[in-house]
């Protein structure tokens, strides 16, 4: 066996393979949204730039940092579970969920502020994309709560604990994080 083959044999897929297929499909679906957004952005550049003025860069950056910290917390939770520190792992997953709640509250606050200023889904194409992309992302945060709930359920009882399932829940949450990273760049910051 060559060194390369031996090295590859020592590698393993984190979590269940099914979650990776799911992440792959989600990445392809979101990529198609991002490409469509970029096409319209190119076609209607002045409208998109004028509309972007009304988004809060600070909110976008704050949302990103909240999700990055939540990803860090859930990565630590997986590590704690591997080290058999199940109480610590549970606390870390709950803190991750708290970050998720904070993210959703800040999004609701941001949406209501935009609607109050008169910028709704039907205002123009930029705001249609803004509500669609942020809305579908929040839906994924909510689905992430189900995954994290399963992780907590697994951590609570010695009979149920499966590191693979715990890793899978964390992988879904990280996906929610990296999707937001691209949404932040495209909606809030690019010019």
């Amino acid at each position: 066996m060559s060194n390369g083959t031996a090295l590859n044999a020592a590698r393993r897929v984190p979590g269940q393979i099914d979650i990776w297929y799911f992440v792959l499909i989600e990445a392809i679906i979101f990529s198609s949204y991002f490409i469509t957004y970029m096409l319209y952005r190119v076609w209607e550049s002045p409208l998109f730039l004028q509309s972007q003025v009304h988004l809060s860069q600070n909110f976008g950056a704050l949302n990103t940092v909240i999700l990055l910290v939540s990803s860090w917390l859930v990565a630590q939770a997986v590590q704690a579970a591997r080290e058999q520190k199940f109480d610590a792992a549970q606390k870390l997953v709950m803190m991750t969920m708290a970050c998720g709640v904070l993210f959703i509250i800040s999004k609701i606050f941001e949406w209501s502020s935009k609607i109050h200023q008169g910028f709704e889904f039907s205002t123009n194409r930029f705001f249609s994309f803004y509500y669609f992309l942020t809305g579908i992302h929040v839906l994924h945060v909510l689905i992430g709560f189900i995954f994290l709930g399963v992780v907590i359920y697994q951590l609570r009882s010695p009979q149920r604990r499966s590191i693979t399932v715990i890793e899978s829940g964390a992988i879904f949450w990280h996906m929610v994080d990296f999707l937001w990273v691209i949404i932040f760049a495209l909606l809030y910051v690019m010019r």
């Binding site: 590859n8 590698r11 393993r12 897929v13 984190p14 990803s71 860090w72 859930v74 990565a75 890793e167 964390a170 992988i171 990280h174 996906m175 994080d177 990296f178 990273v181």
Partner: peptide, 12 residues
């Protein structure tokens, strides 16, 4: 994120 948090650095 994918390499470090999702641990793809250890994947095949």
């Amino acid at each position: 994120i994918v390499w470090e948090f999702m641990e793809l650095n250890r994947a095949p």
